[in-house]
């Protein structure tokens, strides 16, 4: 578990800021102590400083991971969120999208969200901003990227895509072995 380089830190925070905006600070300075990000094999883990100090006592070979994996860096140094980050990011989400119950399954199987399946959208959503996708019962389902702004959504075709699928809680079953 090593510290992220400054460049990677920046990439990570930029990505997180897309979803939670200025609340990124809240992720680090939490009321239950300070949290930090650590990296191992290009995967980024989110863990408390207390846990981090304990994990430092293990050698690299012995430790598989500590904390929660929130995503990974690709070979071209882009950061990709993983579904396990949902629990931490959903409470602070800036832009939200609610799905009709009929469209939930489609999304959970990895499809994009169409206008027909969208139940509600937060007002200030801009084009290509990160959205957290909720079911109508306010259960967070995953991450997406808004392909249209709120205003454009109103006039969009019912079959038009309003959010690109990023990840969803169906991955807990679909790609169980890949999740860490």
């Amino acid at each position: 578990m090593k510290r992220l380089s400054e460049q990677r830190n920046k990439i990570l925070f930029e990505k997180l800021a897309k979803y939670v905006g200025p609340n990124v600070k809240v992720l680090i300075e939490r009321p239950d102590g300070n949290y930090c990000f650590r990296e191992k094999k290009d995967r980024v883990y989110y863990l408390s400083e207390k846990l981090m100090k304990l994990s430092d006592t293990f050698t690299q070979q012995q430790l598989v991971c500590a904390g929660t994996c929130i995503g990974k860096f690709t070979k071209s140094n882009k950061f990709i969120l993983q579904i396990t980050a949902l629990n931490y990011l959903a409470p602070y989400a800036q832009c939200k999208m609610w799905l009709k119950s009929s469209a939930e399954q489609q999304f959970l199987y990895g499809q994009h969200v169409t206008k027909g399946g969208m139940g509600r959208i937060s007002e200030n959503t801009e084009k290509y901003s990160g959205v957290v996708v909720y079911s109508m019962e306010d259960l967070p389902l995953g991450f997406g990227v808004a392909s249209l702004s709120t205003a454009e959504c109103k006039h969009a075709d019912p079959m038009a895509t309003v959010a690109f699928h990023q990840c969803d809680i169906g991955e807990y079953i679909r790609s169980e072995k890949d999740l860490l």
Binding site: F13, I28, N34, F37
Partner: peptide, 16 residues
């Protein structure tokens, strides 16, 4: 950890 946190916050500020 204090220093790391302040560095991180600086990066966040620059991003935001």
């Amino acid at each position: 950890s204090m220093q790391e946190r302040s560095e991180n916050l600086a990066i966040i500020d620059s991003v935001l």
